[in-house]
Computed example of a mutant assay.
Amino acid sequence: MSHSLQDVTTLQALYCRGVDDRDPDLLRSIIADDVEFAGADGVHTVGVDGFLGVFARYWTANPGPVLHMVSNVELLGDEVRSLFHAASRAPGGPIVQTWGRYRDHVARAPHGGLVFTAKRVLVVHRG
């Protein structure tokens, strides 16, 4: 079954909201059981617990507000390429701007929606 750009855009928006709102239940709902995650910092995990653990550690280390935006979404079969921009701020600290690329793979889940089967984060700038 093919995927629509609208389905992929919705999935990306749910991911951003899940990360920004620190919502592990939302993130769990948009990943496959065997999801692969590769972070810009070299972390690599496979599976739900590893994926959610990455964000639990991130949320603990960065308790301030964060806002993600995704753009330039390209759908190439099951591969999704996009750009991201995130702004975050530690309590009392400066605003940190991060931007880069997502290289993801998606699949249709039994519930009918899309889920990530792989998410790769490539940071171009942070500071």
Rank of each mutant, 00 (worst) to 15 (best):
R89C: 08
V54D: 00
M1Y: 09
L26P: 04
G50R: 13
A86S: 15
V35P: 07
V54P: 00
G39Q: 02
N72Y: 10
I95Q: 03
F37T: 00
G127W: 07
A118Q: 06
L52N: 08
V43G: 06
E79L: 14
G113P: 01
D7P: 00
V80P: 00
G92D: 05
R17F: 09
A107I: 02
G18R: 05
A32S: 14
M1N: 10
A38L: 14
L75F: 07
L67M: 11
D104S: 09
S82K: 10
V35N: 05
I31P: 01
L122Y: 06
L5P: 01
R17L: 15
Y15G: 00
G77Q: 11
G64D: 08
T9D: 08
G53W: 00
P63S: 04
L11I: 05
S82C: 15
V80G: 00
G18I: 03
V19E: 04
S71H: 13
D21H: 13
G42A: 06
N72S: 10
A32Y: 06
M1P: 04
G112M: 09
R81M: 05
G47T: 05
P63M: 07
G93W: 13
L5G: 02
H44L: 08
F116E: 06
M69Q: 08
G100F: 09
A87Y: 07
V106T: 04
R101S: 12
R103L: 15
I30N: 08
V66S: 14
S71G: 12
V46L: 07
D20T: 06
